[in-house]
Computed example of a mutant assay.
Amino acid sequence: MSQHLAPTMTATQSPPVMEARRWLAAATLPEGLELLNVSQAAPVAPPPPPLRAAMIAAIEEDDGSHLYGPVLGLPELRETLANSMTGRYGGAVKDSQIAITSGCNQAFAAVMSTLAAPGDNVILPVPWYFNHQMWLQMTGVEPRALDTGPSLLPDPEAAAALIDARTRAIVLVSPNNPCGVEYPDALISAFRDLARARGLALIVDETYRDFDSRSGAPHSLLQDPDWDDTVISLYSFSKAYRLTGHRVGAIATSPARLAQVEKFLDTVQICAPQLGQRAALWGLKHLEDWLAGQRDEILARRTAMETAFQRLPGWELLGCGAYFGYARHRLGLPSDQLAERMVSEIGVLALPGTMFAPKGAPRGAEEMRFAFANIDETGIRELAERLGTYTPS
């Protein structure tokens, strides 16, 4: 029997992190070297003990932890997150503007399902977050590449030149994945103004906002009383509270759009995991000081990364922040070949720039992402030492 596969699905790249794991499974590490895994931007430690205790209590004492819940999320979590965002950003966010999703990737998919149909296009700055590009491609929506050049900052005027009658949205990620760059408020506001003037949505993925190096609000978008006519903010609790396996994300947008999001969520999963939602709620209420300490640790690792890459032969650090360092190499091999060789030759697992750019884009072959959040400062120095003495065989 022949297989019938959707062309949009078969044309979509394989999941990059899974591809990197296949390299690891096929490789033999250099003798005497432990693997430095800087491929995936996810905490490897479990939630802190007080949060785990609260989750155990919820399993044992809260029957709702095991049942279906409201499609748009636990009401108390929606309200608490809205209040938290209001306090952080100024302006006003209401619980009716919040939906809870099964992770931030689902938040993106749900929002895009309300915005774009096959044949439409969405503007993505390059280097892009690969799962954004993958979702668009597999649903028949064109990911329209907006190159960010050496600054890694997207240009609103260049974006304006890409807009046509089928453009539905512009997507920004700040702090950026894969580049680590924090977009200035003025730049994000300029994109909001462009999107509003052209009748588009501006989607701002803020998965890493808890690790932004700036004090105060990272942008002023939500201070606009009409913010939800244009702006859609996405968030993940996974990085903040180490809840990756429990899949809890969020959308902030208009109640009218959430009425459409509800259709998507009900069809795909009905509701986000109940235990994860209760864990996120407990974290919002009780872990502010702990999270501040986690932020300090990530910022210290960022500084260590910047220091380690200074004058590193063959490498130039283009961007650094949140969980990521993004670098250009001059080692004479395309980055996808280089990344695979590095596993067996120096025991480093990182993702090549080809996974964050359109196929054949020159910059993809020259760049690489290092997710440094899961190695300490000693590990960062070891990474730099291995890279600095490395010549591909």
Rank of each mutant, 00 (worst) to 15 (best):
L351C: 07
L312F: 11
G319Y: 01
A350C: 09
A350D: 09
A292K: 13
A304E: 08
A292L: 13
V343H: 08
L317V: 07
P352N: 04
R328G: 07
G321R: 00
L351A: 03
S335N: 09
G347M: 04
L318P: 04
A327Y: 02
D296N: 13
I346Y: 09
R301G: 03
E340P: 03
G293I: 05
E316V: 12
Q310R: 13
W290F: 10
D336S: 14
S335Y: 04
F309T: 06
R302C: 09
G314C: 00
E297V: 09
L284G: 08
R341F: 12
T354W: 10
L331K: 04
A279N: 11
V343C: 09
P352Q: 04
C320F: 00
D289T: 14
L312D: 11
R301E: 15
C320V: 02
V348E: 06
A279T: 01
G319T: 11
G276N: 07
L317Y: 02
Q277T: 10
A304L: 04
A308C: 13
Y326D: 02
F324K: 03
H286I: 03
G321Q: 04
Y323F: 11
Q294F: 15
G276Q: 00
Q294R: 15
R328Y: 06
H286E: 15
E345K: 00
L318R: 02
H286S: 13
G332E: 07
Q277N: 01
Y326F: 10
I346F: 10
